[in-house]
Amino acid sequence: MNQIVRNVGFLLLSSSLLVGCGDNASQDTESQKASESTEQAQTNKLDKEVQSYKEFASDQLDQFVVETEAFVEAVKAGDVEKAKELYAPARMYFERSEPIAESFGDLDPRIDARLADVKEEGQGEEQWSGYHKIEKGLWEEGTTKGYEEVADQLLKDVKELRAKVETVEVTPDLMITGAVDLLNEVSTSKITGEEEIYSHTDLYDFKANVEGAEKIFEIFKPKLQEKDAQLVKTLEENFKTLNGLLAKHEDGKGGFVSFEKLTKEDTKALSEAVDHLGEPLSQMAIVVE
């Protein structure tokens, strides 16, 4: 109990820092030190987990570079069918490691922006780049013509992303927030079919986001097991349910059917399964306690 009391006191102190009661500078500095040392302690405790996640993300982005190279090659060779085939599976490596990829505010949109995102920023189609721009060419216009430069730039951006990943400071906080964010991504854009409006390959992204969240859970699992075995059981069951629902929409060739094939009942069932999973997933934060 004493420990808890002390921590609550600390939280009150540090939250007063957030609202900027700036006239007591020495106290602020002290609580900042306290805050840093607490975070340091947490990170140390979960060093192994953080390291595994870094390795996972690096590996995913290595493969993202390889697959993007193949995709870009097909685009530049004018092979529409080949490019279409490579498009969705390549993107999955990116979607799985989104908590890390997102850390770069400029690169993420250059690779992954939808036309709607660009327009929201008050920009025109000429500022648009990346995967979704080529997606439009492939599915809506049935061509790769005129997209060669976009493809070159895409590969450059993806390589830059891979190089920069080494500089990301991975923390347990990033992992916990990232897992929930991956599911939130699914809830807000994948389940509505707004991510892949030309190719309708949203289920690939969906699956990859879920796999990304599940990876983080897998990494924390041994520690979680010690703290709350029931939570582990619930999460395992809920991942299984969601993956089972997704499996119903596999195309039998290692991929997924078009999002347009899904009925209202299908998307509702998927959406509810994501919510069932998201609530206990947010409780993973007990791992830092």
Binding site: V8, L11, L12, S15, D228, Q230, L231, T234, E279, P280, Q283, I286, E289
Partner: peptide
Amino acid sequence: VILGASGLT
């Protein structure tokens, strides 16, 4: 004040 719950499930 931070409100929270350890393990709703």
